[in-house]
Amino acid sequence: MSLVSGEQIDGGLRISSASPRDYFALLKPRVMSLVVLTALAGMMIEPVKVHPVVGFISLLAIAVGAGASGALNMWYDADIDAVMSRTSTRPIPSGRIQPGEALGFGLVLSAFSVATLGLVSNWLAAGLLAFTIFFYAVIYTMWLKRWTPQNIVIGGAAGALPPVVACAAVTGSVSLASLVLFAIIFIWTPPHFWALAIAKAGEYGRAGVPMMPNAKGEKRTRLEMLIYTILLAPLGVVPALLGQASIAYGVIAALSGLFMLRLAIKVWRAADAEAADRDCKKLFGYSILYLFLLFGVIVIENTIVTVLRVMG
């Protein structure tokens, strides 16, 4: 008699059919790509230059740390993910990875990424990375998300910290410029996330997550999205005003900020639920482009400056 019956071994153990791609999906690769870009901008915005190998490994550690917190989030939120269409195909709700496997994966990668960053750069950066993982996995995922409609406002701090961690990795301290980048991502998060939450309000409601649209209503959410975008548009220009980015960056940030504001006004003034839904999808898509544009310009112009300096 075989010990194996289907995928289940006697005693509750199970033979895994998970592929490396499933484990990679636990790291939330799309979020990770944004973390890599914002961290790279945080690294480059200060004039201090580090050895490329040290910079690359620090960036890798920050990306893996962010991915580890994503895996811990998917472990804890598997029950919510299972009832929402957007997340029901994730590795845990679809049964490809067991919750315990995701927990172990997340914890090991968290420890590895923090230790690596500490050994390669410095322990201030490692401490900030550990705090980021803790804030996302415990404060946001386990506490705020199911408790308050302000969940993603406060929890947004975790997503905003990578430039600060990266800046600390190369300079050994937390600079004003990196805090400005933190503020941009922090203020960007509510209009970005609530645009999605309005489109998916019913699903969040059924899952028991008190997102702003299903807890306080769509009208109030649309007003708050507008207020945050009014704050965001000028904030995006601040790196240029501080002299940490070029005038070209300032012009691009101002124009793209005004366009985002225009979309937020359209969302706020939407005549009916159908129009609001359509405009929210537009705002959600554009908000991602906006953040990529701002941080992408910082990375590109600093790369050009570095290349020109190396070429003499």
Binding site: E7, I15, S16, S17, A18, S19, P20, Y23
Partner: peptide, 8 residues
């Protein structure tokens, strides 16, 4: 399962 294990 064998293919998945090899890939892992």
């Amino acid at each position: 399962q064998a293919k998945a294990r090899r890939a892992r």
